[in-house]
Lab assay of single mutants.
Amino acid sequence: SRWTEEEMETAKKGLLEHGRNWSAIARMVGSKTVSQCKNFYFNYKKRQNLDEILQQHK
């Protein structure tokens, strides 16, 4: 299923807060499964600069 802007923003916040904790990110997004969140990261990594966001994760 397609990702809305809102879901993407929430997933990015999740990456920032939780790093690669996909289940925590899935809980934040609410409408996507753990594997969908993981796939989002790998599919949108380049397009959305997700690696940069991940590097900011403490």
Rank of each mutant, 00 (worst) to 15 (best):
S1F: 10
S1M: 06
S1N: 15
S1Y: 07
S1W: 15
R2P: 05
R2Y: 14
R2K: 14
W3V: 07
W3F: 09
W3P: 11
W3Q: 14
W3S: 13
T4Y: 01
T4K: 12
T4F: 04
T4H: 03
T4P: 02
T4W: 03
E5G: 06
E5Y: 07
E5A: 10
E5S: 06
E5V: 10
E5P: 07
E6M: 04
E6K: 09
E6G: 05
E6V: 10
E6L: 07
E7W: 07
E7I: 12
E7P: 06
E7R: 11
M8T: 08
M8Q: 07
M8V: 09
M8P: 09
M8S: 02
M8C: 00
M8E: 05
M8W: 01
E9W: 02
E9Y: 06
E9P: 03
E9R: 05
T10P: 07
T10H: 04
T10L: 15
T10C: 09
T10Y: 10
A11F: 13
A11M: 15
A11D: 01
A11C: 02
K13Q: 06
K13D: 05
K13M: 01
K13R: 13
K13Y: 01
G14R: 06
G14T: 06
L15Y: 07
L15A: 02
L15V: 04
L15P: 05
L15R: 11
L16M: 08
L16N: 05
L16H: 05
L16Q: 06
L16G: 06
E17S: 05
E17T: 05
E17I: 13
E17P: 01
E17G: 05
E17L: 12
E17W: 05
E17F: 08
E17M: 07
E17H: 10
H18W: 11
H18I: 07
H18R: 14
H18P: 04
G19Q: 02
G19C: 13
G19I: 14
G19S: 09
G19T: 09
G19K: 04
R20W: 12
R20C: 15
R20Y: 02
R20I: 08
R20T: 15
R20K: 14
N21T: 03
W22F: 12
W22P: 03
W22R: 00
W22Y: 07
W22M: 03
W22C: 01
W22N: 00
W22E: 00
S23V: 15
S23T: 12
S23N: 15
A24Q: 13
A24G: 01
A24L: 10
I25L: 06
I25C: 01
I25V: 09
A26V: 10
A26E: 01
A26Q: 03
R27S: 11
M28G: 02
M28T: 06
M28Y: 10
M28L: 12
M28A: 08
V29W: 13
V29C: 05
V29Q: 01
V29F: 04
G30I: 15
G30W: 11
G30V: 15
G30A: 07
G30E: 14
G30T: 06
G30M: 12
G30K: 10
G30P: 08
S31H: 04
S31C: 01
S31Y: 02
K32I: 00
K32C: 00
K32E: 01
K32V: 00
K32D: 00
K32H: 03
T33D: 05
T33W: 02
T33K: 06
V34S: 11
V34Q: 08
V34D: 04
V34M: 07
V34W: 11
V34Y: 04
S35R: 08
S35L: 12
S35H: 10
S35G: 11
Q36F: 15
Q36G: 09
Q36A: 14
C37Q: 00
C37T: 05
C37D: 01
C37G: 00
C37K: 00
K38S: 02
K38F: 02
K38Q: 09
K38V: 05
K38P: 00
K38L: 03
K38W: 00
K38G: 00
N39I: 08
N39S: 10
N39D: 14
N39Y: 06
F40P: 00
F40W: 14
F40C: 03
Y41I: 15
Y41M: 08
Y41C: 10
Y41V: 10
Y41E: 01
F42E: 15
F42M: 13
F42R: 15
F42G: 05
F42D: 15
F42W: 11
N43H: 13
N43Q: 15
N43A: 11
N43M: 07
N43D: 11
N43C: 06
Y44L: 10
Y44F: 13
Y44H: 09
Y44A: 07
K45G: 06
K45D: 07
K45A: 08
K46V: 01
K46T: 12
K46H: 05
K46I: 07
R47T: 14
R47N: 10
R47E: 15
R47Y: 01
Q48T: 10
Q48E: 15
Q48V: 14
Q48M: 11
Q48R: 07
Q48I: 14
N49P: 12
N49A: 14
L50V: 06
L50R: 10
L50D: 10
L50K: 04
L50Y: 01
L50C: 07
L50A: 11
D51P: 08
D51S: 08
D51Y: 02
D51H: 09
D51R: 15
D51I: 15
E52C: 08
E52S: 09
E52F: 01
E52M: 01
E52H: 12
E52Y: 06
I53G: 10
I53H: 11
I53N: 11
L54N: 08
L54R: 09
L54M: 08
Q55D: 08
Q55F: 08
Q55S: 12
Q55V: 06
Q55C: 04
H57R: 12
H57P: 13
